[in-house]
Design a protein around this nucleic acid. Structure first.
Length: 469
RNA sequence: GGCGACAUAGCCAAGGGGUAAGGCACGGGUCUGCAACACCCUUAUCAUCGGUUCAAAUCCGAUUGUCGCCUCCA
């Protein structure tokens, strides 16, 4: 299995620290609002990575945090006149709902920053003791960036370049820093803000220290994979490396994975641009499986553009897979119980080739776009081979092939059996009678009427089928 | 200004030295009362220019264009 490692800038053969086990940390959202579709990308991507790793037999310890102490949360809490925890708890719950709808499995552990303050204080003390951090007059604790020789190794930045391009940073009121590159580990409280007791002042942690501490606590000093959006490379992940490696004296993460951004109509998504969508917004119009399918249809390291048209196209593509599986289910209802014949056995063998091709795509840095194209090739194969006379065993084998692959992508393609209302059932019966009597006008009337109710009818050789729009 | 990524058919998108996967849309068929589904057929020389090579879309260089990071935004 090859993984592109941001650290080296190359695809590397994946070798976990401990055979058979994978420790993985994914930076999670700050919970001040419903998650947006940009948040959804890493969730879907790294959930898929996790699924594939588990399929390969790894025991995956998957940790993803919720950042629940932050300026934006505090701001919202003040606006609503409630405690910040009310805000963060609310959006953690909402986030979990969205994750479920996208079929993103819960992490092994979802730590919350506010539960880990003690550990953060501990790590900050250690950094001070080792000379990697210092306390300013007002109690702010800064990380001494230049004390960590390898700073810049992840983002491949040169410290002096950073400095040259950003003199303006000094204007931001942080003149008490010894160096512009230094970043905050602990900052003093302001009025009305939540705070914790610490040796330096009452205050709260900086953003970067959270992840270093939570990763260490739940996964250990050295982990296999650390992942997140590419915007986190600098400064967030660079700072995490500095903190963790300076404190622990060990390499932090062996592989760094970063997903590219999701744009909207070719522009970066932002509230001020008016092109901001929450996952919830999308769910009002589409099954979120379609959003998932859409996200996986491009490589995770390529920028992905989102638009209404592209979602429609994704819907059509996803439906093609769902239809194929539902056709199999339909055929299975009356399929003969017999041993598969020679041709069927040959096809069952041939179908396995798709699995191999799928794996090959996933092994190559999780090329889900390629992997999905394999699913379509399989769908075509199945659509061509599955017949009314096909044996149960054969049809079941075909279905299993498709479902295995889609499961690995976290895509749900099996629609749950649903009982229609009696009234609708009656209309369908009436339409069948009308068709027999060649009263097509009445038949079409009924079909139109049902369509208005979101039921689409299809007359197949074997009988009438229906599906939800 | 510094660092970096990308440029493949109408659209989306893989591939990556030996003559271009897949999906959506379009068109033509088969099936069908019609529609839908499905199946068959049809659609590109890979931004431009130069170089390396027996051979490049694939490597190198330049140009143009788009985008990202350098601000606690995934």
């Amino acid at each position: 299995m090859k993984i592109y490692n941001t650290l080296s800038g190359k695809k590397e053969e994946f070798e976990p620290k401990e055979a058979g086990k994978v420790s993985m940390y994914v930076c999670g959202p700050t919970v001040y609002n419903l998650i947006h579709i940009g948040n959804a990308r890493p969730m879907i991507i790294f959930d898929t990575v996790r699924r594939y790793m588990e399929y390969k037999g790894y025991d995956v310890n998957f940790v993803s945090n919720f950042t629940d102490v932050d300026d934006k949360i505090i701001k919202k809490a003040i606006e609503e006149g409630v405690d910040p925890s009310v805000i963060s708890e609310r959006y953690i719950e909402e986030c979990k709902k969205d994750m479920k709808a996208m079929n993103v499995r819960p992490a092994t552990t979802h730590p919350k920053a506010t539960n880990e303050i003690e550990g953060m204080i501990g790590m900050i003390e250690e950094l001070i003791a080792k000379g990697h951090a210092y306390v300013a007059k007002d109690g702010t604790v800064y990380f001494k960036t230049r004390s960590f020789r390898e700073y810049g190794k992840l983002s491949h930045k040169n410290l002096d370049d950073l400095r040259g391009g950003n003199r303006s940073l000094l204007v931001s009121g942080e003149e008490q820093k010894e160096d512009v590159l230094d970043f905050v580990l602990w900052k003093p409280k302001k009025d009305g803000e939540p705070y914790w007791e610490a040796p330096w002042c009452e205050g709260r942690p900086g953003w970067h220290i959270e992840c270093s501490v939570m990763s260490k606590k739940y996964l250990g000093d050295e982990i296999d994979i650390h992942a997140g959006g590419e915007d986190l490379i600098f400064p967030h992940h660079e700072n995490e490396i500095a903190q963790s490696e300076a404190a622990n004296g060990k390499a932090f993460a062996r592989y760094w994975m970063h997903n590219a951004f999701l744009n909207i109509d070719n522009r970066k998504m932002s509230k001020s641009e008016g092109n901001f969508f929450t996952v919830r917004d999308i769910s009002e119009k589409y099954d979120l499986q379609i959003l998932r399918f859409f996200m996986l249809s491009a490589h995770y390291r390529s920028p992905l553009n989102f638009s209404a048209d592209l979602m429609e196209a994704a819907k059509s593509g996803y439906d093609r897979i769902v239809t194929s599986v539902s056709n199999l289910d339909y055929l299975l209802e009356n399929a003969p119980e017999r041993e598969p014949d020679a041709a069927e056995r040959a096809d069952m063998e041939a179908a396995k080739g798709y699995m191999a091709k799928f794996e090959e795509a996933m092994e190559d840095d999780f090329n889900t776009a390629d992997a999905i194209s394999v699913i379509f090739e399989l769908v075509k194969f199945v659509n061509t081979k599955a017949k009314e006379q096909s044996s149960q065993t054969f049809l079941q084998a075909m279905k299993k092939e498709i479902v295995t692959l889609t499961d690995l992508c976290g895509l749900i393609v099996e629609k749950e059996a649903e009982i229609l209302d009696e009234d609708i059932e009656k209309l369908i019966q009436e339409r069948q009678s009308a068709r027999k009597e060649k009263n097509f006008q009445r038949a079409d009337e009924i079909r139109d009427e049902l369509q208005k109710q979101g039921i689409i009818l299809e007359d197949t050789r074997e009988g009438v089928k229906w599906k939800r729009a």
